[in-house]
Structure formats: structure tokens, C-alpha cells
Amino acid sequence: MPADGSDFNRRPAHGVPAGRAGTPALAATRALSLHARLVARDERALAELIETITPWLLGITQALLSDAAEAEDVVQETFTTVWNRIGQVPTESRGLLAWILRAARNRAIDRLRSRKRRVMKSARLAVHGMDGEPFAAAEEPDEAGTAGWHVHRTVHAALEALPREQQVVVWLAYFSGLTQSQIGARLGIPIGTVKTRLRLAFDKLRLVLGPMKDWIL
């Protein structure tokens, strides 16, 4: 690692790190290499990993926690776990980043539930409501090769393709951390309806997201 750490801050002006032009930033070959370098305790590999995935980790953790500082804490803890337990992370082609995304989300949900902040969260949701689109399209950064942007575009399209009522339950369940009964109470619908909508939505999402495993980490 450079002494001044300047490499860690090298990113475009808008803050989202630049991708590797012309190639999928999260290509399996690179990721496998990244994993192997992490196992070898290569600090530059850690810097690359952090630079690549932190914006996405902050996306899910901030959505769950509604607290930027706490979201950064969760991301920090997640990277520390990855660095200290890299030997336990799956080595399959889509193992590393998927594992990190899941670990960060689980950690954020654990925080959310342990701190009993759901009431606050629900209150915020009630204030903001679900009047707008749950998955409003994000503005694409300047660089077409922003790391992972192509993944985001695919996932986002899959979410947008869901019927509105399924979008809402997926948003509340997956991106707000509510349980099925809380969603039912929030929307005023039976829990059975919540389960059905979630099942239908996830089945559709799996059809789109499942094949991505062949070429993404």
C-alpha cells in the first residue's frame, strides 16, 4: 500500500470509481485473481476490492439503515471480515463479491434489528411513503465502464419489470429489512398476500439474475 494512500482515493470527480474500460470490471478472471491476491495478503488487491464494491455496499446498507455513518461502519466491518477470513470465502467464480454483498446486507439487517430501529425506519417510510417508484432509475455516471454498472442495469431492469405491488413488497422486504408481518402491517394486507407477492417476485428475479452467475463473480 502506498504510504500516502493516494491510490485509494483515485476515483472520478463524482465519487464513483472508474471501471476498466472495455472489459467487464467484475469479470471472473479478474475476480479470481483478486481472490487469489487477497489470499496472498496483497494490500493492493484489497484496495481494488474496496474501490470496486464500496459504492454498491453503501447503496444497500444506507437503504437499510438510513444512516450514512452507520452504513460506513457496516462496510468497514464487512471488509475487515473479508480480509481476516478470506480463506473461508467461496472460491467459485461468482463467490467473492456476491459473498461480500450478502455479508454486508446481513450485517446491516442485524444492526437494524438489534437496535430496534425498525420503528424509526417505518416512521420514515410512512413519511416518505411509497408514492414514488420504489426503484427509480439512477442516473448513469459519465464513465460507461463504472465498475458493476452493467450489473446494476440488469438488476434494475428486472426490478422495474415487476408489477407495482410486487415491487413494493420487494422494496420493503429486501431493501428496507422489514419482516413479512411488518410488511403486512405496513401495507394493511394479510401476511399470506405478502408471502405470495414475495414468492412471485423472487421467482421472476431468479429467472433474470440466476444466469448472471456464469460470468459474474
Binding site: 464513483v16 437503504a63 456476491a98 439512477a138 463504472t146 438488476v155 428475479l205 439474475l209
Partner: peptide, 9 residues
């Protein structure tokens, strides 16, 4: 696994 990336970075 990639569902969290449905949110904007």
C-alpha cells in the same frame, strides 16, 4: 446475490 446492486451506487 446481485439483487443489492439493483440500487444505485
Amino acid at each position: 446475490a446481485w439483487l443489492p446492486m439493483g440500487l444505485a451506487p
